[in-house]
Simulated scan of single mutants.
Amino acid sequence: MLRIIEKTKIWFAFSLIIIVIGLGFIFTRGLNFGIDFKGGTQVVVEMGKDFDKEEADVIVKQYASDASTNKIDKTQYEIKSKDLPTEKVSELFSELKKTYNLEETAPVSEDSIGASVGKELAKNSLVALGIACIAMLIYIQIRFEMNYGIAALVALVHDVLITLSVFAIFYIPVNTPFIAAILTIIGYSINDTIVIFDRMRENSKNMRRSTPEVIANVSLTQTMGRSINTTLTTLFSIVAVNIFVPTVREFSFPLVIGIAFGAYSSIFIASPVWVILKKKVKKKNVVETA
Rank of each mutant, 00 (worst) to 15 (best):
N32L: 01
L126T: 09
T75D: 00
A216T: 00
A270K: 03
T211V: 12
E6M: 02
K279G: 01
T234N: 06
R199F: 10
Q62N: 15
V45D: 11
Y188Q: 02
F27R: 03
I79A: 12
T8P: 05
V287Q: 08
S189C: 10
T176L: 13
V117H: 00
N101Y: 14
V127A: 07
F268W: 10
L31F: 15
K53D: 02
N32F: 07
K9Y: 14
S109C: 09
E78W: 01
V20T: 09
T69P: 06
N147F: 07
D57F: 00
Y63E: 05
V127H: 03
L255C: 12
S271A: 15
L121Q: 03
F144K: 00
V273F: 06
E103T: 09
V248M: 12
S65Y: 02
F27V: 13
V44M: 14
T230Y: 03
F27L: 05
R143Q: 08
Y264E: 00
Y77A: 06
A132T: 13
T69W: 12
G258N: 07
Y139W: 08
T99C: 06
S204Q: 13
K71Q: 14
M224Q: 09
K71V: 07
R201Y: 09
E110R: 11
G48F: 12
V256N: 04
K9C: 06
M136R: 12
M136C: 09
Y188N: 09
I10K: 08
K205D: 04
L96I: 03
V286A: 11
F12S: 10
I267S: 06
E78F: 11
F178Y: 13
A122K: 15
I243K: 06
L92V: 05
I134N: 07
T193R: 13
K280Y: 08
